[in-house]
Amino acid sequence: MRQLNVIANPSAVREAADAILAAGKNPTVEAVRARLGGGSPNTIVRELNAWREALGERFLALEQRPPLPAPLGEMVKDLWTVALTHARAGVVDELAAERSSIEGARLLLEADRQELEKTSQARALEVAELRGRLELTDRARIDAEQRLQQVTGERDAALMEAGTIAAHRKALEAELSRTRAEREGDRQWFDAEQQRLLREVDAQRQSAKDSARSVKRLEDAAARAAEKHAGELARVRDRLQTAEERRSELVGRVKELERQNRVRRASPTSKSSSKRKATPKRK
């Protein structure tokens, strides 16, 4: 919008009017505005009316002074006549200028109104565009919030599943530790049982050797006393036969224990077939 940047104050308007009148011209509204470089036409019209009313008083004050020399008095009279003529003509010119100024102001106001309408239309378009963008932003925000809720739910479900998996893993680790402890216990039991069986086998072997030596001694004694103790020899032979059967039985048991030992070594985790199996007692 256009603006009247120059302020038409009373003193500026009077000085401009005096300067225009001294140049022999009529101080109209447009002439004063042109000399001031702008200003409100209404303000200039009001100040020019006040200037014209004061102009007559200024000339009357000049007439009340001591008489001037004739040439100077004639000059003042001519100047007064010109001022009156300009003042009379100025009224008409002032009215025309005022109408022109009013028309110019109206045209300016109309241009400003049209410009305001264009600006308002542009602002309305901008507002509509901004509202559209705001609606899109709101929809995007709603979609983002829904997506956030979905992701939050998925995260919570994943956390719950992770907790379940962690608990299951801990249970498996505990089960594995228990299984390892049981296997270690079984291994220790198997080693102890193996050592016991080996000691028993050694004892059986030693007993067999002792029996064989006893049988040998008995045979020797029997041979020496065969003639004298025939009945005793028969009994010794029976005992020898019994000892031999016992030795054969012990040898069979030793072989069975060795076979069982090999089976246990081949499958150390099989508890159902080997764990704490009762060892037969000696007869």
Rank of each mutant, 00 (worst) to 15 (best):
L4K: 14
D210L: 05
G252W: 00
D93L: 15
L84S: 09
L257S: 15
A89V: 05
E15G: 06
A97W: 13
A19V: 01
E175T: 02
Q188P: 00
D18Y: 03
A222F: 12
A230H: 09
L125K: 08
R180C: 00
Q195V: 08
R262A: 12
A230S: 12
N26Y: 01
R99H: 15
S120V: 13
S267H: 13
S274Y: 08
L109R: 10
H86Q: 09
A61T: 06
K209G: 06
E175R: 11
A243V: 04
A203H: 07
R199W: 07
R88H: 05
A17Q: 01
L21K: 04
E184W: 00
Q241E: 10
R147M: 11
K216R: 09
G252D: 11
R253A: 14
E74C: 09
K283H: 09
R213E: 10
L134V: 05
E256Q: 14
A167M: 05
A8W: 03
Q194D: 07
S120M: 13
A19C: 03
D210P: 01
E175L: 07
L68K: 15
L60Q: 14
R213W: 01
E182H: 08
R264V: 10
M1Y: 11
L172K: 01
E126D: 13
R178G: 02
A34L: 10
S270A: 15
A140V: 02
A162Q: 08
E227Y: 13
A162H: 09
P67F: 07
A128C: 08
Q146Y: 00
L257K: 07
E173V: 02
V76W: 10
A8D: 01
E154T: 04
A105F: 05
F59H: 04
A230T: 12
K283F: 07
D156L: 11
R199Q: 15
A31S: 04
L218I: 14
R259L: 03
T242E: 14
Q146D: 07
A171I: 01
K281M: 06
A12N: 05
E117W: 04
S101F: 06
N9K: 09
N26E: 14
Q146F: 02
R276S: 01
A23G: 10
W80D: 12
Q149P: 01
L134F: 04
S100H: 06
R247A: 11
E47W: 11
